[in-house]
Nucleic acid binder design. Structure first.
Lengths: 139, 139
DNA sequence: CTCTAAAAGCAAATATTTTGCATTTAAAAT
DNA sequence: ATTTTAAATGCAAAATATTTGCTTTTAGAG
């Protein structure tokens, strides 16, 4: 388990107070957070800077950016790569280990004519949680 | 191949001029569109109404809502369910057939304690297209 | 310690999404 | 056909999210 500073260095970025704080906050909370969440959580950073820090973290693959159909981006440090199931009624989110298989990734590479490699993917599942009632259309 | 009106009726919604126009536009263009795109494309609908129409289309599974890390939602009619590879440099999008396997979906259901069914999922791949250069970090 | 490119701050603009309420309309009931 | 009514739409405004341009600060190389 590496610390924030090592992780930043390993990914070829300047180690700054802001980046350390954002990454540490993401590591500590361990759940998907919005820019607003992070900005408030860290406390001393300009929100624009938070946007820029997350942009670069995501582009280096240090942070997973995703979308839960809430009209804004969510960011999460992923010590272990994973995805979520989201309730479309109450917004409850559960972490899941299920992920695409290497075979699927290979088939993507094989299928596409315009990309020779895939850096990352975003995968989220939506349903209605047991509290909110049981959904009918399965697929 | 069903027409817009049948599709709306089949999904238990009132058939309105707005819904017909939006769905038809999505069918005709056949690519992921933003609210702005659809609003302009249809021409006569208030943008708020477009939001509301897409909300209900997505909730009924008639339309696939996704996110390409552009700070806004994309919507696409999916005659055949599919996903995309997106270039993180130029934004170029390519349609791909690759999708999660039924086995993965089963494993999600098995893994989660809070959901008894999954209605839909969002899956997108990101990379750098051949035009923009070749990315290094593969996984 | 100096220097410089990169990062952060700040203010403002732009874009996206949501909300509340008045009006219109689809389609069911008469 | 006409009436009725819940659902859909329009409109204006608010709230929220994201981007941009430019100045100042700072990490880290030399």
């Amino acid at each position: 388990m590496k610390n924030a500073q090592e992780l930043i260095k390993l990914n070829h970025m300047k180690v700054t107070k802001g980046r350390l704080a954002v990454l540490q906050y993401l590591i500590d909370t361990g759940e998907p957070l919005t820019i607003e969440n992070i900005s408030l959580g860290v406390g001393f950073l300009n929100k624009v800077t938070v946007y820029r820090i997350l942009d670069i973290f995501v582009s280096r693959g240090l942070v997973y950016q995703t979308d839960f159909r809430k009209g804004k981006a969510y960011f999460e440090f992923q010590e272990h790569h994973h995805h979520h199931v989201v309730c479309t009624v109450c917004g409850y989110k559960e972490e899941i280990a299920a992920c695409i298989s290497p075979a699927i990734l290979k088939s993507v590479i094989k299928e596409t004519r315009s990309f020779s490699s895939i850096d990352r993917h975003m995968l989220e599942f939506f349903g209605v949680c047991n509290k909110c009632g049981v959904s009918k259309n399965n697929y």
